[in-house]
Design a protein around this nucleic acid. Sequence first.
DNA 1: TCTAAGTTTAAGGTTAATTTAAGCATTAAA
DNA 2: TTTAATGCTTAAATTAACCTTAAACTTAGA
Lengths: 219, 219
Amino acid sequence: MHLLLVEDDHLVAEGLCRSLRQQGYSVEHSSTVKSAMQWLQNDEIELVVLDLGLPDGDGIDILKHIKKHRKNLPVVILTARGSIDDKVMGLDLGADDYLAKPFDPAELFARLRVASRRVTQAQTSTLKVGDVEMDTAAFTVSFQGEPVNLPRKEFMLLKALLENQGRVQSKQQLENKLYEWGEEVGSNTIEVHIHHLRKKFPKEFIKTLRGIGYVVGKR
Amino acid sequence: MHLLLVEDDHLVAEGLCRSLRQQGYSVEHSSTVKSAMQWLQNDEIELVVLDLGLPDGDGIDILKHIKKHRKNLPVVILTARGSIDDKVMGLDLGADDYLAKPFDPAELFARLRVASRRVTQAQTSTLKVGDVEMDTAAFTVSFQGEPVNLPRKEFMLLKALLENQGRVQSKQQLENKLYEWGEEVGSNTIEVHIHHLRKKFPKEFIKTLRGIGYVVGKR
DNA sequence: TCTAAGTTTAAGGTTAATTTAAGCATTAAA
DNA sequence: TTTAATGCTTAAATTAACCTTAAACTTAGA
């Protein structure tokens, strides 16, 4: 894992570099705001250890920069200043953690492990067929990137179709998905909703198979 | 945001509960390992503040249990023991942070904000959507640069919306975020708060999606 | 304690979503 | 090419969701 260490005190830096490498990180080191910024251009940096109080500027600026351009890059702040205000400020600006010098390297390593654990996690509940994309958690749908507003039943119907991409579903099956048991549907609701959906998407997006049902997607 | 406080000292617990609630958390409290475990069955707990050293067992067991069953649930440990070994152990077991007693409440709040950011994906303590800006740490909101005064519940509601910019949230979801369990909301509180918020911001800032919920921001 | 601000409740009005129903269009088989 | 079956379209009727208001209640601060 690639780590950027920003620290101006050469003695401290040297020691840290060595022990971080022993911990298995690939360490890049910079001692000025300027060079730190350059390193940050590099997308391969996955973790930053940042000393505030550098010779040519304030480390806080680096933090701001990171949080503006690479929100998900974890940053652990390292500093001599230990007042609570400083801590609160660093954390509120988006730092993931904060250690006051002097600190025990073991504690830094532990905190880095926590931070790097976080790097890998993402889960999306999104369905996509052609240009139509749905986020079932956020209740949003878009067509060619443009958001489309769907009422509840239309949303549910489209969801049922997208979840069964390429599979034909009868009106009866779809009805069962949209309505509670025992809720009698005495009419052609599904047809009507399909009609409304079709107005919002390309002509042939929802295909009809006469006497069988409806499909979406490849076939 | 739902928080579980595990703390056996009743005096401390009471004070913390109150101030955490003022910080906008819905706080559930338990003072034993057993009841903590029960609370943790509940999926909606999003954040845990854990005192080690409980009467009927070790808090570390709770931590282990959490990390086994709900890896992503952030835990902030709170304890009288302050040695580095303890810290390292707590962190390596998956705690996200560690505070030694006595601590300044402001620092706990700052660290909790960091932990909850992780849950909500937001990166800093300031949330911004359009002309509306919120500083969750300072508890302030502004519209077009002008400060807007919001009562606590309205603030929490707006926060829940801003944290989920572009994501539609149902009334039920919002209710769950603003209220503690056992506190049944027998009425249309959310609707009323939304109404009040709308008076303070532009007409279409909070959008309604009938039958689905409310959103703020892009769509 | 008292007061003012915040919060919840409840009722009635408003509007959008959903269902219904009827007539029109298309398909496939005789 | 006719016919019967199935699906499409439209608009009106119905229903459910939401908004608004005001009053009752609660809480926090002086």
